[in-house]
Design a protein around this nucleic acid. Sequence first.
DNA 1: CTGACGCTTCGGTGCCGCCCGAAGCAACGG
DNA 2: CCGTTGCTTCGGGCGGCACCGAAGCGTCAG
Lengths: 225, 225
Amino acid sequence: MTVPQMAEIAALVGDPARATILSTLFDGRALTATELSFAANVTPQTTSGHLAKMTQAGLLTVLKQGRHRYFRLATPLVAQMLESIMAVAASAPPRYRPRTAQEDRLRLARTCYDHFAGILGVSIADALCERKHVILSDDGGEVTESGRAFLNDFGITLATRTRRPICRHCLDWTERRFHLSGVVGAAITTRCFDLGWVRRERNPRALQITPKGREGFRRSFGFSI
Amino acid sequence: MTVPQMAEIAALVGDPARATILSTLFDGRALTATELSFAANVTPQTTSGHLAKMTQAGLLTVLKQGRHRYFRLATPLVAQMLESIMAVAASAPPRYRPRTAQEDRLRLARTCYDHFAGILGVSIADALCERKHVILSDDGGEVTESGRAFLNDFGITLATRTRRPICRHCLDWTERRFHLSGVVGAAITTRCFDLGWVRRERNPRALQITPKGREGFRRSFGFSI
DNA sequence: CTGACGCTTCGGTGCCGCCCGAAGCAACGG
DNA sequence: CCGTTGCTTCGGGCGGCACCGAAGCGTCAG
């Protein structure tokens, strides 16, 4: 039975402090133990224990650099697992939720592993679908010819040799709708950073949309945000 | 923050008894509280508590029928979450594993929600791919014309109106390779049950391949099992 | 070398929650 | 109507683990 192993992994995610750490690392960055201890709101000793357990279990990998130790999610599989847990958590319980300003910022725009999520992510996906640049189906999506041209204009060239440009959708856990992930989602995100349309906030998970970005999204994608 | 909710869901899966229950329900069946208490190896009272918590959290739904209460996974999202946790659990830790006969049977053939998994599931996927009846790409798959014809011969008619017959792949957590899920995977599984090629074992998760089935898989799919 | 910093290990405390025994309730069968 | 079966709630015991304070170890700056 692999059940005990499954329980072990789930139990690791099941502690609030560890869940916070994982969720902080969710966008793919590598952070130091101290930064994570700050994020999780526990002392460095406690954080150290958590990080050791998760590394041991294969959820995290660590990169030693001088006197710092940088932790990151070990594999995309881990990110995918977190995402599916979040999807269930978001869809399942009505529960009460206080709604903080912090949470609102997160809801507006954030990164999900390596691509946009939140209202921004969903708006981009909607815009591309509406113009038939991307066709989303039940478990994936494809970029049309017009979409390829559109992305080209936007400064993104997709490899032409692949049968189907890798374009996935990803259930947004605040909006409960799809945003784009995969190669396409990541490329759009990177491009927007390069264009200066978005910036990281003090809370590194939330994104700030610049005035230039608002204008750009309106002109290129046709939505106001 | 939705982090605490995520931790809550993960913590539910993180208890061995509950993980066993969820894993027992993983193939989509509905079982009574008593059956589940047997599977989880705890008393009915304890099981009752677990089931209540998981139902409350939206992981399970319950169907009252006379004096029985049938529990099943609430949504496919939950099954997907379990699957991704299993994938991480299987890929992450080398750990020791005793290898029981029971586990070998499970590894040979079992159902994964509503479709075949294990060596059987992977073999079917391999056979269909090799003959170009199905093309698997990075995050899904499609059925070709020849595949449609093949399935037709096999007694399965796919709806023609859908843009792309829904065919997903699903990472097999014992074989670490893909098997087919989605509509196609489920249809093949159902058909094999109807043909008497597979039967449920005493352990309801494991499947028994009948002699007729071995012959059939050899003739129709070209693999020996 | 000395101090500061990042991170770890060690020991002890407190709390959460898993578990079972006992008892209660609801549905079915005779 | 009473016994059986399926499932629940209640109460208490007990183990495990998250947490912190203190101290130790490597790394870097001066």
